[in-house]
Nucleic acid binder design. Structure first.
Lengths: 213, 213
DNA sequence: CAAAATTTTAAACAAAAGTTTAAAAAAATT
DNA sequence: AATTTTTTTAAACTTTTGTTTAAAATTTTG
């Protein structure tokens, strides 16, 4: 029997708020919802976090951090091959998303709605575009804009979680199948990415012919 | 010089509401926002649409229709090959999304937040799973759950539009580049999908060997 | 052109939501 | 143990928001 450790009130509030914000969105979540969920007085939320917006900002920054920052070191690691990076990215990220499946849709959507978090965005974009991953992709395929492959890789990893609300109702069985499919993708996506890198366009073939001439 | 045709008030309201709902979400959009955007009196919105929720329902159904219903006939067409279906899907859908880039994130997000639109979802799932496309995919690759390829195809088409708020700020130049990349994907995605279909797993190779024995 | 129907407006209403206040309760300090 | 500090509570306050009302303006109809 585990001793129910007394959670700190401010954390209890933040956890409840995060749960509600990620599932219902910012505007649809009220202070009273958060108070009810965390079983504290309404005034305590303002006592600890000053305002709803400030509480949201803190949670948003945390979620953003969770969702993006962990992949940066993988992209920037100069000691790994492209194949190793992809495998690492697919495994770590899918494992992470299985734990927090609502995070992508939440962050991407709030990012669209709130034009505030711009600084973080610009930073992210710069870091990705100058990463070791991009260099390795360009070395492998110089004809095609590397952004295409980033879209493909991230899309194959993240998109099922964004589609999840469409395909799976609240049935537990379906959730089981979904998780199984995600686990299958852990080894399939690296395979597919490799096929994509090696698929030749008409232009590529043309260039090869003219070169050998 | 085009004569500015006088738009019907009820349509003016609906169009403004759609614009605001899709960019800001349901809860963040107020009746007063809609009134301001469409330059009508607040009371007119309730006069024509009874309530905010009813107006939203109408717009949501329209958006849902736009986003999903047009692809169903392509998936179900028994007179086209798998390759033709993919090409048609990629071309039509990317062209459509270039015109309404915020639609996917909006619909997918509201679908998650509002557990109301369930009927439409179940219908959609059934239609897709019994479609000609799924049969053709299974005929081509029986080892892998066809849902994988649906995720990949839709992901490659839709995901860039979901990532758009992250990568592109409001700069027009970046929007130009984005559109160019999407246009490139029109011929790249069918190519990639073909590569993905033909990429062999270890299990496939094993099965081939044991068969030829 | 007058009457009727429809559309539009300003104002008010009621409920919801974020925030503040001041006192009570609990915990920490001396 | 008494005092000070921190945490929690109930209640009220202020805005915001969806909705309604009743009158005015406009359009349609007979």
């Amino acid at each position: 029997m585990s001793i129910p450790k007394k959670e700190i009130t401010s954390d209890k509030i933040k956890d409840s708020a995060k749960k509600l914000f990620t599932t219902k969105g910012y505007s649809a979540t009220t202070i009273r919802d958060i108070a009810k969920e965390s079983q504290v007085n309404i005034a305590l939320i303002n006592y600890y976090y000053r305002s709803k917006e400030n509480l949201f900002r803190i949670i948003m920054e945390e979620s953003f951090e969770q969702l993006f920052k962990q992949i940066i070191p993988i992209l920037n690691n100069k000691d790994t091959t492209l194949e190793e990076k992809i495998e690492s990215l697919v495994n770590n990220y899918l494992e992470f998303l299985l734990e927090f499946p609502e995070l992508p849709l939440f962050v991407l959507n709030e990012l669209k709605n709130n034009p505030k978090h711009l600084e973080t965005k610009i930073n992210l974009k710069k870091k990705v575009s100058k990463s070791s991953l991009i260099n390795q992709i360009m070395a492998k395929n110089s004809e095609i804009n590397p952004l295409h492959f980033v879209f493909n890789l991230l899309g194959m990893i993240v998109f099922p979680f964004i589609m999840k609300p469409v395909i799976s109702s609240s049935k537990l069985l379906e959730n089981e199948i979904f998780n199984q499919i995600i686990n299958e993708r852990k080894h399939l996506i690296p395979l597919w990415m490799n096929s994509i890198f090696n698929s030749k366009t008409e232009i590529d073939i043309f260039n090869q012919i003219t070169k050998t001439k």
